[in-house]
C-alpha cells in the first residue's frame, strides 16, 4: 500500500510535469505573436517590441519554460531591468498584463466561488440522484420507477442555459422570490450567499441528478440479480438488511468513482452556470481570459484545472481501494 502510494504520487508529479510542458508550449509557442496581442489598435512596432521584452518573449523557448516552472516554486520578477519591475510571488503561474494582476491572485479569487458552487451542486445531486435511483430500483417496472426515469430523461434533455434562464425569469424576475444574484462569501453574508447560490446549484445539479438517478438505478438493479444477494436471502436475512447491507453496499461503490471525477471536473469551473448567474468563478474567468487572449491566464487556469483532475483521479483510486477489498493496491 505504501509503495503503491509513493509510486502513484511520483507518477502524478511526472504527469503534472509533462502537462506543464504541453500546456506551456501549446499556448505560448503556437503560430501567432503573443506580444502583438498585448496592445490594441494603436500599436507601433516599438511598443510591441518593448512588450515582447517585458513579457520575456524575446528569450529562447526553453528559457521561457524554465523561468515559468521556476516561477511556480520560487517566484519571478518581470521586466526586472525596467524602472517598475513586476514581482510575482511563488507560486507564480505568470502575470496577466491585460489585468495587471498575478495569475495566481486571479485564480485564488475566483476559485472559492467555483468551489462553493461545485460542492453545493454536488451534495444536491448526490442526495437526489442516489436516493431517487434507489427508489426507482426498488420499484422496478412499476409507476414510481417509470416516473423517476421520465424525470431523468427530462433532466437530461434540458440544457443548463435553458433551465438557468427559465429559473431567472420566473423565480427572480416574475415571482421575485429571490434577489438578483450577487456573490458574497458565505462567511460574510450567509443569507445572501444562499440566495445567490440556490439557483446555480439547482441548474448545475439537474443534469448530474438525471445521470446519477440512472446510474444508481442500473447499478442497484444489477446487484439485485447478483448471486451474493440471493445468498443473503437464503441466509434468512430480513429484506431490509439484504437491500441495504448487501445489495446497496456493492451497487453504490462504483458511483464513488464517477462522483469523484465529476466533482473534479466541476471544480475546474462551471462555464455556463457561472456566466448565466454572473458568478465570478473559474469558469467565467476562463471564458474572459480566452476572449481577451490573455495567454498567461489561460495557461494558468488550464494547468490548474488539469492538476485538479489528476489529483482527484489519485484520490478516487485510493478511495476505491478502501471501499472495495478486491482492489489490490500494488
Amino acid at each position: 500500500m505504501a509503495g503503491y502510494m509513493v509510486r502513484r504520487v511520483l507518477q502524478m508529479f511526472l504527469l503534472l510535469f509533462l502537462l506543464s510542458i504541453v500546456v506551456f508550449f501549446l499556448f505560448n509557442l503556437l503560430p501567432g505573436d503573443p506580444a502583438r496581442l498585448t496592445c490594441g489598435k494603436a500599436c507601433t512596432p516599438a511598443i510591441i517590441e518593448a512588450n515582447r521584452h517585458r513579457l520575456g518573449l524575446d528569450e529562447p523557448p526553453l528559457t521561457q519554460y524554465t523561468k515559468f516552472v521556476s516561477g511556480i516554486f520560487v517566484g519571478r520578477t518581470f521586466s526586472a531591468d525596467s524602472p517598475q519591475p513586476i514581482v510575482c510571488d511563488a507560486p507564480c503561474l505568470g502575470y496577466s498584463f491585460n489585468r495587471h494582476e498575478q495569475v495566481m491572485k486571479l485564480i485564488t479569487t475566483a476559485a472559492p466561488v467555483t468551489f462553493w458552487l461545485a460542492i453545493g451542486a454536488f451534495i444536491l445531486w448526490i442526495i437526489a440522484g442516489i436516493s431517487l435511483g434507489i427508489f426507482a430500483a426498488l420499484n422496478h417496472g412499476r409507476w414510481p420507477d417509470r416516473l423517476v426515469m421520465a424525470i431523468s430523461l427530462i433532466g437530461y434533455s434540458l440544457p443548463a442555459f435553458f433551465i438557468g434562464l427559465v429559473l431567472i425569469f420566473f423565480v427572480i424576475i416574475k415571482w421575485q422570490m429571490l434577489p438578483f444574484p450577487s456573490y458574497v462569501s458565505p462567511f460574510e453574508n450567509p443569507v445572501q450567499f444562499l440566495q445567490t447560490m440556490l439557483l446555480p446549484w439547482i441548474v448545475l445539479a439537474t443534469l448530474n441528478t438525471a445521470f446519477y438517478m440512472r446510474l444508481t438505478r442500473n447499478q442497484v438493479l444489477e446487484t439485485f440479480s447478483e448471486d451474493y444477494v440471493r445468498t443473503a436471502r437464503a441466509k434468512g436475512l430480513p429484506e431490509r438488511t439484504v437491500i441495504v447491507h448487501h445489495a446497496l453496499r456493492a451497487g453504490l461503490t462504483p458511483i464513488v468513482t464517477a462522483a469523484g471525477m465529476d466533482l473534479a471536473v466541476l471544480l475546474g469551473g462551471a462555464i455556463i452556470s457561472e456566466n448565466i448567474f454572473s458568478l465570478p468563478g473559474l469558469g467565467a474567468l476562463a471564458v474572459s481570459s480566452i476572449t481577451d487572449s490573455d495567454l498567461p491566464l489561460i495557461t494558468g487556469i488550464t494547468l490548474l484545472t488539469a492538476s485538479i483532475i489528476i489529483v482527484a483521479n489519485l484520490v478516487v483510486d485510493l478511495l476505491y481501494a478502501v471501499v472495495d477489498p478486491r482492489v489490490r493496491l500494488g
Binding site: 451474493y228 445468498t231 453496499r249
Partner: peptide
Amino acid sequence: MAMIFQDPMSSLHPF
C-alpha cells in the same frame, strides 16, 4: 432449510 449454490465465485459477498 439452507441452500448452497452453483458458483461459489459469485455467491459470497465480495466486500
